[in-house]
Design a protein around this nucleic acid. Structure first.
Lengths: 151, 151
DNA sequence: CGACAGATGCAACAGAGTTGCATGAATACA
DNA sequence: TGTATTCATGCAACTCTGTTGCATCTGTCG
């Protein structure tokens, strides 16, 4: 399990509450906490990551699923299945993420967001229309390469 | 569920059996049928696709999982998690597939293989090493665009 | 044809995610 | 400020995908 270093400065809870209310939903502790975590995270988080990160203040599993689902529905986050077949969520609009390149370390399992433009998609067959393109890279991250760890 | 049109000409069972034995494994009906299906399929198949396609001659679920796993281990196929969090398998070496671009239709759920080269990956952060790059596209396929079919 | 190792099938299990329903709490309104 | 309303939460049970253990069967080799 990758730990979740707080990369961004701790976003103000009230600010988040505002943003939540702006979507027409209620600003509940659960939503604020989760949105806070996702905003601070440097990479997409899985349900499990979030559960772990919440620690003592853990929510019910179902509630977490619902909060995440709500985040996606309201456009505050996007979800996407990773190589391990689990959903990973990342916020959008917070200036943090959107449709760019992800790198998954095959040794430690962490997912990194690369500061690279979305790839230029190839020509599609006739009649096909493109909605989204995602470039997924995998390999070893700097830490794992340095530490020499891994099989 | 996408139906599975037999795109390639029906590969000879004996030929497949040969290929299976070449890996040092036994040429069992289960393996031959699954390999046959995967070879004929124009796109990666999920476990469920295969189960459906086998129809009457269906295998035990576990056996199918094991056969698929064996295919991957022996290098005859590759597996990869799709957007719906299920594994999709495709043969390699049969001249059909390897590490290229996939397109998933968001309407019918089918996965297509585009005859395009793998994308050129962006520069990685220092210390990172790349093992694999996958470009995943999604949108609507020609049929769904033409048929105007929604859900 | 017979033996043996590998493959199959059954059953039970595990992890991720979903659904139904009663209770609780954030908002709205008096 | 207090109350009502309605959305959100938590619990339990369930589905779906995939895995593991073990007994039985069968493809392959002699």
């Amino acid at each position: 399990m990758p730990d979740i270093p707080p990369a961004s400065p701790p976003t103000d809870g009230d600010d988040l509450a505002e943003r939540i209310r702006a979507t027409g939903a209620r600003a509940t502790p659960a939503r604020i906490r989760v949105l806070e975590l996702l905003t601070a995270a440097p990479a997409p988080l899985s349900h499990q990551d979030i559960e772990g990160a919440l620690g003592a203040a853990s929510l019910d599993r179902v509630t977490l699923y619902r909060v995440l689902d709500w985040l996606v529905e309201s456009g505050l986050a996007v979800k996407r299945a990773d190589e391990r077949r689990v959903w990973r969520f990342s916020v959008v609009g917070g200036g943090v993420h959107h449709g760019h390149v992800h790198f998954r370390c095959e040794t430690c399992g962490r997912v990194f967001c690369l500061d690279a433009p979305a790839p230029r998609p190839p020509r599609l067959p006739g009649g096909f229309t493109l909605a989204r393109a995602e470039l997924d890279l995998s390999g070893r991250c700097a830490e794992c390469n340095a530490g020499g760890g891994g099989t």
